[in-house]
Design a protein around this nucleic acid. Structure first.
Lengths: 131, 131
DNA sequence: TGGACATATGAACAGTTCTGCAGATGTGCA
DNA sequence: TGCACATCTGCAGAACTGTTCATATGTCCA
């Protein structure tokens, strides 16, 4: 929509710019604010080591809360809270069976991100063992 | 290392498990704690909408601080703080030219993640315009 | 039906994170 | 040299996040 033709228009609010053309073109390409927020929300969910561990654990298939707690080392309450958050964002889904609740990954995009991250981890482990 | 043969050994700390075999095999595959933390750190950097916007802006090439501030709508101080953090994690790098500082993306993995996220954004925008 | 069990939830506290402000640093130009 | 400019930094307050504790819900089994 905003072509670099109306760059001058952007100056109205008196901000100094070094490269106004680039700024305009970057603004053109920039996703909507909502999209940015949604995306950063997803990254944010993966940005906690315990939640990430939960999701890695779920890569191979469903697990119940107590098993997830065992894998991550979290208390069952903390695990439940974390899963609740992931569920609210539709990253995981539940299957209830008797008194157990089995969680599974339910978002292809997130699965891809977690897969990628694990792959990258192994990769850099091999290359930079100093960390 | 831990084969499912020594599953019983895991019971020592008296945690009830529904599917001990799966827990053991998930534990086998689980990356080291350090790797998990490092990975979640990266996701965490992308988990803030303002930082994510900065990184999206940098996808096409370097920009100076004031232009980045203009693009993201952040104050220059906040921009500088955010860039500092990204720099500390080697996600971006600086080139100084006179009194300006030009930042660029400096981590191929992060670039891929941001690219992917933007692509996915556009994709789901088209499919689920209700959001 | 009653009690043990698995999970979920709410409230409160602790730790972390982000921003604005004020001032510091370093650069360019007159 | 002195001043304006671009950026950086430390600090303090505000906002957010994650955990624990206590309690609630719903299920199974005797």
């Amino acid at each position: 929509m905003n072509s670099s033709a109306d760059v001058q228009g952007l100056d109205e609010c008196a901000v100094r710019l070094v490269d106004p053309e680039r700024v305009a073109s970057v603004n053109d390409r920039m996703p909507a604010e909502d999209a940015i927020v949604d995306t950063s929300d997803v990254f944010s969910l993966l940005g906690d080591p315990r939640r990430l561990k939960l999701l890695v654990a779920l890569l191979d298939g469903e697990l119940c809360v107590c098993d997830l707690a065992a894998v991550t080392g979290l208390s069952e309450s903390a695990t439940s809270h974390a899963l609740r958050l992931l569920r609210a964002h539709r990253v995981v889904a539940v299957r209830r069976d008797g008194r157990n609740a089995f969680y599974r990954l339910d978002d292809a995009h997130v699965r891809m991100l977690v897969d990628l991250a694990v792959a990258h981890t192994e990769h850099t482990d091999a290359i930079h063992p100093e960390r």
